[in-house]
Design a protein around this nucleic acid. Sequence first.
DNA 1: TAGTTGACACGAACGGCGTTCGCTAGTAGA
DNA 2: TCTACTAGCGAACGCCGTTCGTGTCAACTA
Lengths: 241, 241
Amino acid sequence: MTTASTPTWPGSFGAEPRRKRRALSRELIVETALKIVDTEGLDALNMRRVAQELGTGAASLYAHVANKDELLALLLDRVYGDLDHPAPDAERWREQAKDFLRQQRDNLVSHGDLARAAMIQNIPTSPGALDAAETMLALLRAGGLPEQVCAYAVDVISLYVVATALEESSRQGPGGVPDEGQVEAYIGGVRSFFASLPPERYPMIVAMAGALTRNVGDERFEFGLDLLFDGLTAQAGRTFD
Amino acid sequence: MTTASTPTWPGSFGAEPRRKRRALSRELIVETALKIVDTEGLDALNMRRVAQELGTGAASLYAHVANKDELLALLLDRVYGDLDHPAPDAERWREQAKDFLRQQRDNLVSHGDLARAAMIQNIPTSPGALDAAETMLALLRAGGLPEQVCAYAVDVISLYVVATALEESSRQGPGGVPDEGQVEAYIGGVRSFFASLPPERYPMIVAMAGALTRNVGDERFEFGLDLLFDGLTAQAGRTFD
DNA sequence: TAGTTGACACGAACGGCGTTCGCTAGTAGA
DNA sequence: TCTACTAGCGAACGCCGTTCGTGTCAACTA
């Protein structure tokens, strides 16, 4: 049985004049993928979608990128490459470090929910992520902290940055602009959910519904930074083994 | 065109005596899914696999579970339901809190890389997760910390627990038993990678390769706990607005 | 006991995904 | 101008989550 198909003609009728061969490249693919993540979110990113944006088929991408995981890694590296690295100054290493972390967070948040990809990636091995780790280590060491404290701390701290970036981006929709009212509506929904819980089982959550969903600018993020760096001073004299 | 198919007989030849109708239920599905995650990891969990384990088809599951996301949420709730909740004691709230967090971490790690599902789930709304949050809030309040400090801190802290559980589970393979040598091989691989980096670009990382990959028992996790709780005491007097 | 009915179970299929295979066509060198 | 090579690409494979329409069992009614 031959199925009837829409008639086609191998030649060209002038419409769609067989796209001139594009100079496909890693950079172009990464840039295109990043644009999709920025505007439509990480879930909208797939190989076909990237290829379509470039006017080609998904298969063509595999000549430049091993697989989707590698593409995600390249995306993250591209974003981590956008950082300004401070030269450690022992006098103000703490503010330098905090600024550097704020920068990382802003960078991530400005690219939709790309932070989700960073969260899965357990250990940073890309040049950009390694650069960031190197700078953080240098800053902590400039603060005179013991080697092992720095080693452990750099993990905890970057974890915090990525996780809060993820939380922030999930507050905002997948789309581009944050949309103030939309964020407020989301927060408000969570607040009224907490407030509506049975008070006999969740007395604390109900009573603290307001405090739990408070979202004034970057106060929440800054609190975590203070917490971590205050804890760090307390650990300054710690020795291991 | 009729395609030739392998001959079948609608009746039974005695083999495969048409499985007795199973009493499918939410609990049974969740339990089965959990077993799969435990033994084969989160990636191996899919609706067909669960159904197969229950001797049925994937479609049957959807009568009891809305979709895969709900199944994951139920899985997490099931795991968070296994916690022992301490009654807050103002004299030793700190150790109580730390013990409670250690318990959460052990619980997560004992179920493969289920923590990855917890990481994606941004805000806890399931009974089990809410119970855990309630207990943590009660413990922090028992410590006399300001309301807003507790509210922010409970977020940061549970984030830390889930994230380190994820890190730990990714060290161990997807399989059940941790396998000591396997973990050591993984860590060793990361260490030699760090050590092999160009020292002129990554002087800190190369010099600290040992410290960065040190993995002595739960020392790493405990360090983070100390860091957070020390920071918390430093924030004890903080006011907002 | 025989008939009816409604809830549960399920095979098959749909659309979308990452990835691969093998043909095609454009380009650079002889 | 011819040839060899390489990048590009359509089509297909296998897997996924999910849905649809049908089948089937068990309890209730008469």
